[in-house]
């Protein structure tokens, strides 16, 4: 349990840095790499990626939305189209990050177990 939490935190932190320095999928790929080097079950691999990047994207989107009073969020939530719902767009953002990173984490864990 403690391991999983630490892994999630590590993925979130390194994923954040990776995305700042590079492109969007650098975050999810961090989940792959961490699970490649830090052995764990397939389930833990998926969960750590899903929550690590999912929570990171959720927090960042939520922060931006709040800090800007949702000025752009509302407009984008109509374009997407999510009926102008800020909550829906923030959730979609978190889910896209989470799911991609979850799959990456799972792949990382599997790669590790195949190598072992």
């Amino acid at each position: 349990m403690k391991n999983t939490v630490l892994k999630i935190l590590l993925i979130a932190l390194l994923g954040w840095a990776a995305q700042y320095l590079s492109v969007w999928f650098a975050g999810p790929l961090t989940a792959l790499l961490i699970n490649l080097f830090w052995k764990g079950s397939s389930g833990q691999g998926f969960l750590s990626g899903f929550l690590g990047i999912g929570l990171l994207w959720l927090a960042l989107a939520l922060y931006t939305d709040q800090a800007t009073d949702g000025l752009l969020t509302v407009k984008m939530a109509q374009i997407f189209p999510l009926n102008g719902s800020r909550v829906a767009l923030i959730s979609l953002t978190a889910f896209v990050g989470a799911f991609t990173a979850g799959m990456c984490g799972w792949t990382g864990a599997l790669l590790r177990s195949v190598r072992d």
Partner: peptide, 18 residues
């Protein structure tokens, strides 16, 4: 592109100004 544009660091979120 969903991943690219929803990325809260580099995507459209970066265009939201305080």
């Amino acid at each position: 592109p969903l991943g690219k544009i929803l990325d809260p660091v580099n995507g459209f979120w970066a265009n939201a100004e305080k």
